[in-house]
């Protein structure tokens, strides 16, 4: 147990180093930008006195390492500065918009696993036959198509033409949002005991989540297929076959578990891509997440808001990756054993 704890601490330490690196990177990008950061942060209407006051407050005349240290201190106390666009603290803005994005990404992650894994398993099981060809085509199209292209195509066909799904937004206009407890619409609806509202929110979530899931789904199916094919060629599977074990049992019991482990390790990366691609899908479906805010602050050169948004997304990505790492540790007996021996 202490070994698992030690490896967990090791991972957290590595994540912390990367996070410090990211803060340096963002800080460096923000400082090498042409122009006076204080003038940009305050906007063109600020007076020279206001700019000078902010320069003093932000220690902008101090050497760069001192500036960086001040930046870290304020971030560590939860102060990400103030957004010029909304005129509110950046943390307030992010707290408002982030849950909708995370909800979308989580549901996409679930779809990615629930659809991607079975496609990969079926492809491997029917190797070289019709289901395999279909499965490979789906995964290829998933990987090669940008999320926003999936978005507009799904929206056009299933939303506009067939009318199966709502075209945009998080809720129908007739439905009132549940009081925000967690910020996640589905969870809040469930807490409020609003069954109809929950279903409406779910109905709105499906198309964007599917569009966002397609790339990771394709990657998952692709990897599961090739890993299972590899396992199928191992001697113990041959032996199970020779003993006349049913094909389904071989697939689920002997081939699937070892094939799952390398697949799990890429899930973290796929989640990362989803946090980025969510920006595209949110734009297509008018989803009230971080996307509109992020693009808006970038176009307005809203310095604090850009830095804050990137830091929060990077932190979310690191946390997801640590969780995936821990899951892989729990599932993979070989790593668990190695940790036990170390």
């Amino acid at each position: 147990m202490s070994n698992i704890l030690r490896s967990l601490l090791h991972r957290l330490g590595a994540a912390l180093i990367v996070m410090i690196g990211i803060s340096m990177l963002i800080f460096a990008i923000a400082r090498v930008m042409p122009g006076d950061p204080a003038r940009i942060a305050l906007g063109p209407n600020a007076t020279a006195e206001q700019v000078a006051a902010l320069r003093l407050e932000r220690h902008l005349d101090a050497p760069l390492p001192v500036q960086y240290w001040e930046f870290v201190k304020s971030v560590a106390t939860g102060d990400l500065g103030k957004s010029l666009y909304t005129n509110r603290p950046v943390t307030t803005d992010i707290a408002q918009f982030l849950p909708a994005t995370l909800e979308l990404v989580f549901v996409s992650g679930i779809l990615m696993v629930l659809i991607g894994l079975p496609i990969g398993i079926l492809s491997a099981h029917y190797r070289g036959r019709f289901p395999d060809h279909v499965g490979r085509l789906i995964s290829l199209l998933g990987v090669c198509t940008p999320a926003f292209v999936w978005g507009v195509i799904l929206q056009l066909v299933l939303g506009y033409f067939w009318g199966w799904f709502p075209i945009e937004g998080q809720l129908s206009q007739s439905v009132t949002a549940a009081p925000a407890v967690t910020g996640f619409m589905l969870v809040d609806m469930a807490i409020a005991g609003n069954g109809a509202g929950f279903l409406d929110a779910l109905h709105h979530l499906i198309l964007p989540a599917l569009a966002l899931a397609m790339s990771g789904l394709g990657q998952t199916a692709r990897l599961t297929r090739s890993n299972m094919n590899e396992v199928y060629e191992r001697p113990y599977v041959e032996m199970a076959r020779a003993y006349g074990f049913p094909a389904r049992r071989i697939a689920t019991r002997y081939a699937f578990r070892p094939a799952l482990i390398p697949t799990l390790t890429i899930l973290g990366l796929e989640f990362a891509a989803m946090l980025g691609n969510a920006f595209l899908v949110e734009k297509v479906f008018g989803w009230p997440g971080l996307s509109r805010y992020g693009v808006e602050v970038i176009l307005r050169k809203d310095l604090d808001a850009i830095v804050g948004t990137v830091l929060v997304i990077a932190a979310a990505f690191l946390i997801v990756n640590i969780i995936v790492d821990i899951l892989v540790n729990i599932i993979n007996p070989r790593i668990r054993l190695a940790a036990g021996r170390a």
């Binding site: 180093i17 990367v18 690196g21 990211i22 340096m24 990177l25 963002i26 990008i29 923000a30 090498v32 930008m33 990362a272 891509a273 946090l275 980025g276 691609n277 920006f279 595209l280 992020g294 693009v295 602050v297 970038i298 050169k301 850009i306 948004t309 990137v310 997304i313 990077a314 990505f317 690191l318 990756n321």
Partner: peptide, 23 residues
């Protein structure tokens, strides 16, 4: 490689967006 890790630890699209934000 730690510098490389830092770049790989931000979703690519978000990093590109951030750089565009300052330019």
């Amino acid at each position: 490689m730690r510098i490389t890790d830092v770049f790989l630890a931000v979703p690519p699209l978000v990093l590109a967006m951030a750089i565009m934000g300052f330019l």
